[in-house]
Amino acid sequence: MSDVPSKGEIHVVHLYPREMSIYGDLGNTRCLASRIRRHGYTPVVHQHHPGAAFPEQAHLVVGGGGQDSGQVRVEADLERIADRLRSLFDAGTPMLMICGMYQLFGNAFITVEGKRLPGLGILDVTTQGNAKRMIGPVVLDTEFGDVVGYENHSGSTTLGAGQAPFGTVRAGHGNNGTDGTEGARSGNVFGSYLHGPILPANPALADALVALAAELATGAPFEPLAQDDAFADEARSRQVRRLVKRG
């Protein structure tokens, strides 16, 4: 495809890849760059670190999971760039926030020790840290079909009234292990606890994010190219069959 003109640049911003990417969530950024390229666009990936200037162009923003200490380390910088992130949200910029960053995009995260970390309030969720972790493979029912991944979190997240979840739990714990919800979605911002990383195993979700970003970046409809996702589809189907035996 090197001889084919690019359909345009799509700028992807990865928030805090050192502090908030300890569960392999960097794979989401790499997956997006690959999918963007395979659809005929040019990916431009930026890493945003605490204290750095936020990139001028941002068509897609991603963030990953981390320990409570990692969340504390990025708290001040997140407050510094909060207005920019909120303006991107208002403009319809697609964002995918996993685990720790999902929590920080909510109203607040309360650590096990009782320390309250205020969030951005983009997602109407509140998270309470617990001593017991929720760990294991997950299957969700979402608007993108079955979505699979792996959760590993001690935070118990509650959705505010009217806040839509990302998906409904078919297997696993989800937000809190009790209400059957997983993650949250407001506009084009998605929050989820699913690692894996989530996007390589769920190409429909990856392409939905790429489509939103491409339209934002170019001002034109997304022009997808056919993809061979046989391996990802088979892996996802196997997890669904293994975990949802009574479905």
Rank of each mutant, 00 (worst) to 15 (best):
L15K: 05
Y16N: 04
P17D: 01
S21K: 00
Y23R: 02
D25Q: 04
R30T: 14
R30H: 14
S34T: 14
R37W: 13
H39R: 03
H39T: 10
G40F: 05
V45Q: 02
Q47T: 02
A53Q: 12
E56R: 11
V61S: 03
V62D: 03
V62P: 07
G63A: 13
G65H: 03
G65D: 00
V72S: 11
R73I: 00
E75W: 12
A76C: 06
D77C: 13
I81Y: 08
A82G: 01
L88A: 02
A91Y: 01
P94L: 00
M97R: 14
G100S: 15
Y102K: 11
G106W: 00
T111R: 10
V112W: 06
E113F: 01
K115C: 07
K115E: 09
L117E: 08
L120M: 04
L120Y: 05
G121I: 09
L123T: 03
V125C: 11
T127M: 08
N130Y: 07
R133G: 08
M134K: 04
G136S: 05
P137V: 03
V139M: 11
D141Q: 08
E143N: 06
E143S: 09
G145W: 00
D146W: 06
D146M: 12
V147W: 08
V148T: 13
G162R: 02
G174W: 03
G174R: 12
G174A: 06
N176D: 09
N176P: 01
G177Q: 04
T181Q: 15
G183T: 10
R185L: 04
S186L: 15
F190D: 07
Y193K: 05
L194Y: 09
L194E: 15
I198L: 06
P200H: 05
N202Q: 04
A204G: 04
A206D: 10
V210C: 01
A214D: 00
L216V: 10
L216T: 07
A220D: 02
E223D: 15
L225R: 09
A226L: 01
Q227T: 11
D228A: 07
A232E: 06
D233W: 00
R236P: 01
R236I: 07
S237P: 09
R238E: 03
L243V: 12
V244C: 14
V244R: 12
R246P: 00
